[in-house]
Structure formats: structure tokens, C-alpha cells
Amino acid sequence: MPRTINASLSTRPAPDTEAFPFEKERRRTLVSRPSVSDSVFRSVAFAAGGITVAIMLAVGVFLSIRASDALGVAGFSFLTEQEWSPESQSFGIASVLFGTITIALIAMCVAVPLALGTALLISEVAQGRLRSTLVTLVDLMAAVPSVVFGLWGVFFLQANVIPVASWISTYFGWIPFFRVSDASGDALTDASAFTSSAFIAGIVVGLMVVPTQTSVMREAFSQAPIGEREAAFALGSTRWGMIQAVVLPFGRGGIIGGTMLGLGRALGETIAVYMIISPIFTINWQLLKTGSNSVSALIALRYGESSAFGLSALMAAGLVLFLLTLVINFTASSIVARSRSGAESD
């Protein structure tokens, strides 16, 4: 950025009136009037920024207006009701919100170790060409369409993960989350009880958000000061010792912020979740068992058959999702920004 020159002219020695007999030198003004093209550019650029903000505001405003109808009817029970039948005036997002959050949390369990490991691998272990190749691959992974991940989840992962899920539920069934049982409480071992579960959807969504998290974390790690890295090595630390003592403490903001950015992504993921889960409208604590739901899958499922009021209810669900991701994202951005030193932020 070009800085405005603020060197003051008054510090000059007073002009010698003998040498300049004409008139006392006037203080020159450094402010120049912008040219026409400049002011046009300024206003156009300002308008572009304004339009961007306006679009974002419009998303919130339109959703709120459309949702107010349904929210007025449902009131507070919108957050506690599990059923979704707007036609009979009983609808709420308790179950879909629960499903959204469980899928996102499972995704975090998959994604955070992978992202942390990959980010450290790229910033600390890999060198030269390998490093730039890995960075490119992470970027590429972020661009793989979610419908492709969904295909993979449905046609490959599902069949191969069921034995693992079944094993977990057999040996860790005493933990309530991992238990898979029917209505009367008997443990189920049939493979069909494990399909289309929140667990499978969570794994796929986890793989989808790893690139986001990796790039934020990698950037934070690479900003750990070189002097302190070398000091750690000079004191005889191993590479992992250096990472523990220097890189991880410096990158803590990046780790937390990256994790939350990924969480925001995971909450909003639609099509892959929709393809994998079999939608239900009750709170399902058994993560490995068939049936889950998410806010975005609910919208994709019901938008077609909805009446005007049903659509308003869907808008209300979308508004909740929007606010949730907005809060998480703002928190994450501020954590990432605060952990950085200096003005550069991207």
C-alpha cells in the first residue's frame, strides 16, 4: 500500500528572503484532487464491496422474512420438537439438529488427527518438491465435488466399514453411543442394522473437510519463528521435541481456528450426507445404527413436496443452520486472526 507522505514542510529552515526576494514560500498542500478515472474507480470498487456485503445481508434477511411465518406458529417448540410435519403444525428441528451435530462431531474425530498430521507433515517433515506436491494435492482435494465423495461413501465405504462398525458395537457396546440395539434392547449384529448410519456419513464428511483444516493449520505452523525452532534444535531437541515445544504452541490458534472452520463446513454439508443416511425424525443416540438426519438433508428431502407453509418451516431450519455456521465461522476467523502476528492476514 502506498502511504501518504506526511513529512511536514515546516521543519525546513526558513527561506532566506535575500535569496528569494519574490514572496514568502507558501506551504505546499500535499492533498491532490483525484482524477475523474480515480473517483470513478473508487466508487465502482466501493459499490462492488457493497454488493458483496449486500448479498450476504440479503441471505440473512430473506431467510428471516420467509421463516418468520413458521417460527411464529411453532415458537420455542421449534427447537425442541422432533417431528417434522408442518401440515399438522407440529414440527421442530431437535432431531435433525442432533443428527447434524453428531455427524459433524464424528467428522471432526476423523478429520482433526488427519489434518493435524498432514499439516505437520507438510510444514515440518516434507521438503522441496514433495512439499509443493502435497500442497497441490490438498487444494485438489478441496475441489473434489461432494457428490463424488457421496458416491464413494455409498458404493465403496459403506460395505467396507460395516465389519468395523459391527466389531466396535460388539466389543464396546457397553458405551451407550456404540451400542446397536432394537426397540426391546437386544443387541443387533445383522449387517443391515449398520448401513446408512451417522458413523458412515461422518467419515465421508470428515474426509471432505480435511483440506480446509489442513491449509489453515499448515499456514499457522509455517509462521512459527525460525529462531526459536533453531534454538530448540541447538538445545539438543529431536524434531518432535521441537514441534512440541515451538510449532504446536505457536500454531494453537491455527489448530483451534482450522478445526472450527472445518466444523462449520461439516455442519453445512448436504449432498454427501443426503446420499448416505436414511432419514429419520427421532433422536438416535446409537451412532452406528441405521438412520440419522441433518438440517441440510431435511431441506433437500422436503423442499419439493412442501406447501407454502412447509417451505417457510424449511426456511426456518435453514436460518438456524445459517446462524450456527455464521457464529462458528466468525469465532474461528477471529481466533485465527488473533493468533497471527503482524498485518498479513488471509
Binding site: 462449520g264 454439508e269 423442499y303 435453514g318
Partner: peptide
């Protein structure tokens, strides 16, 4: 615009719909 990057795609769809 940073916050917008995390806008769920289904919400963008709903917005355009409404």
C-alpha cells in the same frame, strides 16, 4: 466475505429460491 466462504450451499439455494 470470509464468513461467506462457510455459507452452507443448501442455504444459498434456499436464499435464491426465496
Amino acid at each position: 466475505s470470509d464468513a461467506m466462504t462457510a455459507l452452507p450451499s443448501i442455504v444459498a439455494g434456499l436464499f435464491v429460491y426465496s
